[in-house]
Each structure stands twice: as structure tokens, then as C-alpha cells.
Amino acid sequence: MEENIEEITINPESSDKSIIDSVVDKIRSWSRINSPWAIHYNSGSCNGCDIELLTLVTPRYDVERLGIKLQGSPRHADVLIVTGAVTFQSKDRLIRIYNQMPEPKFVIALGSCGISGGVFHDCYCVEGGVADVIPVDVFVPGCPPRPEAMINGVATLLAKIKAGNSKKESSGPTIFAMPEIPVEPAETTSANEPSQKTSLEPSSVSEENQNTSKGENQ
């Protein structure tokens, strides 16, 4: 585990902090990578992703042995796992939960609906994918994704955190209002936003997102 600490890159901002601070940061970051706590929110999903996510904590897959814990309070969570297309009614709540989470926070959007709205993309009560409301770090495609894919999604996120390219501390206020996000394909959107986004399958995701944009323009 020692060498893990060594590998972690330090946020450039913290370089002028005292040595103690930077050591604390290292330890914090190390522990975060080794045991991410996740909170799950269903923003309008069909339950498919939700039951598959719950499968993760049961004996066949059991992600708790890998240090990943699902728990209930946003205040304790590092990772927000969102399933489903975002409906108008749950949009505010999703933003509230996101804002309640302590920094740094990461978001995983699960399933086709989380990516673009999926089959529900042009329904009247659907805002779109999760990325239309809050910044997303990792997309996991599938309807629903297999549990293995979800574990891979978390692993991808951890690799990103470790590489230090998913830091959001410098992104300022984390209140995201809808009108500020331009209706554009995801690749362009992510470049404009302070946060960085990635996906497991960039090509398919960008396609899906283009569909969403069309749906919204109608």
C-alpha cells in the first residue's frame, strides 16, 4: 500500500500548502481510492439498473470485499451513482443531493437512460441524460449494464482519480442550473464545462447524446 501513496499526483493548487497538508491530502486520496462510498439515486429509471446495482452488494458479486460501500446519506458519499433518465420532478432533488455531497465528488451515470435518456429520451416529463443536469465522470452503457460492467465502471473511475485528472476542487460553485448547459453533443459540452467527462465507450456515448439533443430541440 505504501507505493500507492507515492503514485498519487498532488493537486497543483496544494503545492503551496504546508507539508502536513499535502501529506494529509495524500492519505485522504489514498483512502478514497481504496474505499469509495457510493450513494445511489434513481432519477427516473425502470428499476432494471437499480436491482442490478443492488445485486452488487449481494453474495455473487459482493463489491464490499473490494471496499466499495453503498450507503444512504449524501454527506458520507464520495460517488453518486445515478440510474435512469432524469425526470423534471427528480431533477431538483438530484441537484440537491449532488450539492450536499462533500468535495471531491464523482458521478457515475448508469445505463442507456442515464447516458442519454434512452428509450425515454423524448418523453414529456424527461429532462434527458444525467449529464444534462450534473457533471458526470463515468458512463456505464447497457440496458441494464451487467454487474461486471458496473464494477468496471467504478474501477475506471478509481483509475481516473488515481491519475488525478478528475479533480473538481477548482471548479468553483457546484450549483448547476439547466439553462447554462448548451444543448450540444456530449463531447463538445464536456470541453466547455469546468469538469472533465469521460466514458467507457466514447463513440457510442456521443451518438446517444446526439439523439438527446435532437429530442430536446423538438
Binding site: N42, S43, G44, S45, C46, N47, G48, C49, D50, I51, G84, A85, T87, Q89, S90, R93, G118, V119, F120, D122, C123, Y124, C125, V126, C143, P144
Partner: peptide, 28 residues
């Protein structure tokens, strides 16, 4: 909170498409 408007969306899709849409009313 999970109201997506499936019934309305069904009116603008073909019969085959609606089959796959309603399967996603509930994943269970």
C-alpha cells in the same frame, strides 16, 4: 418522481417500438 410519460410517448411510436418501450416501464 419516476413519471416519464410513457403513455404519451407510446402514441408517437410504432407498435413494435412500443413493445420495447413498455418493457421498460418496469425492469422487474
Amino acid at each position: 418522481y419516476v413519471h416519464r410519460g410513457v403513455e404519451k410517448a407510446a402514441e408517437s411510436r410504432t407498435w413494435t417500438q412500443v413493445l420495447y418501450l413498455v418493457e421498460r416501464v418496469c425492469g422487474i
